[in-house]
Amino acid sequence: MTGYVLRRCGQAVVVVLGVTLVTFLMLHALPGNLARSIIGPRATPQQIATFDKQYGLSSPLWYQYWTFLDQLVHGNLGFSFHLSRPVTSLLAAELPRDLILGGLALILSLAIAIPVGVVQAVNRNRLGDYVGTGVGFVLYSMPVYALAIVLVQLFAITFHVFPAQAPQSSSTIGLLEHPSGLVLPVATLTLVTYAQFSRYMRSAAIETLAQDYIRTAQATGLPERLVLWRHLLRNSLISVVTLIGVSIPVIITGTLIVEQVFNFSGAGLEYYNAALTNDYPVMLGVTVVVGVVTVLGNLVADIGYALLDPRIRY
């Protein structure tokens, strides 16, 4: 088990290195003078010289990558000349808010998807199952912003139940002080994530239902409720754990769009704004962080899977 965890961590390190390599190459794909495009059109020669020195731009490419990695490891994600502040401090302020948004959505979507999936599997090919599948289907086929628009139209414009904008407080605590403003962003992201989970959960449960051990349990006279609880749920849940890892990119992308639509201040919105103003350090910083979070999420999910499933002995 320890061996597996160690090896899986080693793998994650390799992938994280890959992610940093990609961002490094993105940086160097910038057109024209690198320093000038990073700092902006009003860069002074002095600034450019400092920048070139800091990133070792005159040295060979591999050394530049090494410098880039070194900076990252020391928590230096670059400096936003546009915002006049280090990217690290910017993200430190924004990420907790993303965590609240994404975390709430993840928990809520699982809380809906798991029971609904099991109920659908048990009542397979009946009306309720068709309705559930249909709803999941439409949600799955909607762009995130379209879902947000529909929710805003319904709950903010037609019936004034919830505000169409996220709380505009700059602090994380301030966010929680106005929970009504959180409802629509979280609901949007929850539905998007739910759409991912629901199809999977249903088919995982159907697959488990077809297993021989379910029949064995029934043959001992176990009531259906207990068959579901003891045998079906647990075995289907194990496969859902890996799905959580896979769904992280979906949640992150969803966060970007939800933040844009609801003007919810977070890393996603920062990325969007940075893109509008060609603020490359912020864009690259967010990309690195997003990549690392995804890798870590997958890592945790895989280890969780190994812990839950006794069959896996590495």
Partner: peptide, 25 residues
């Protein structure tokens, strides 16, 4: 009634022992 009979009055053994037990219990 069937649930009270199964496993109590009538027991059943299946063909494939590899898949007939719950792997996580």
């Amino acid at each position: 009634t069937m649930q009270s009979v199964r496993g109590d009055q009538i027991g059943m053994v299946f063909q494939d022992p590899m898949t007939s037990l719950n792997p996580t219990m």
